[in-house]
Amino acid sequence: MQPGRRLCLFRSRLCALCLPCLCAVPALAQGPQATPSILAPASTPAHEIYNLSLFVLLITGSIFAVVAGLLAYVVVRFRARGPDAEHEPPQIYGSTQVELAWTVIPVLIVVVLFLTTARIIFAIQDAPEPKSALDVTVIGHQFWWEFRYPKLNIVTANELHIPASTRGAPEPTYLHLLSADVDHSFWVPQLAGKTDLIPNHPNEMWLDPRAPGLYVGQCAQFCGVEHAKMLIRVYVDTPQQFDSWAENQQRLAVDDSAALAGREVFESQACVNCHTIVGTPAHGTFGPDLTHLMSRATIGAGAAANTPENLHAWIEDPGTFKPGALMPAMQLSNQQVNELVAYLSTLH
């Protein structure tokens, strides 16, 4: 029975160690499109962290191998066996030398780890901001993101567009993080580590993604009811794409006479208290800027795809997608909502 048990112990350990790894493989393979894995860095800060993490993993992994190996050996080798119930094993009280050795070795490891870590901290946190950098002010709201480009005079929400950086022409983006209400945290794992947005405590972080594409992330500091649906989409554009996007964003809102009825609904209701549409009397700042709503792929900070049907449902009752969102259900008639959606759909 005892060897059997021993085998059992070993097997369970093995399973415990390997099962999750095996399971992780399909999960990792599910598609590169949207898994914000920190193991797929696409920007310098994330890269540096990734390299550092491999180093730390190697050290901790070897410590694990040694100590867990010792534990396994002790468990197998020194288990009581046989009928000998009369003997106590030799009593050992300690050993200064051995204890000294296993105190000093960890200290040395700590020294090495610390020096490495300190270097990376300084390299990321104290990196000087180059002149060519793009400045973006990120303001966290319950439960959406406001992005302001002060130099470009653009205000948008939830979907951050930044230019790709190239080795020849580095164009990092510096994010200035503010909060309008409670604590939030900006985290797009493939681009950089997270940094908190705290009222009265401006923070900074930077990204310099090389490969154009979509990178997802979300708020990483619990901020209230809908913390889970405070998603971030970062579009890394080629310089040309970025320029044309920026040009579009700088325009006034489209004034389409076909949607006049909807515009009237918008301006006569409480919508204007919270939302801004540049070029109209709407100047509210509690909700996302809607000037170029149709240029965004999602509504409700990623809660739903930006389609007319979803917009309709959202205006009727935001709780459908996002119970607890601060936008109230406006109690409009179906007709009014239809007009509103028609109007919003013109805001490219």
Partner: peptide, 15 residues
């Protein structure tokens, strides 16, 4: 580091 390594030597070399 030097003192620590020395200490380590002192502890382990007699073994």
């Amino acid at each position: 580091t030097c003192v620590l390594v020395g200490l380590l030597y002192g502890a382990m070399l007699p073994m």
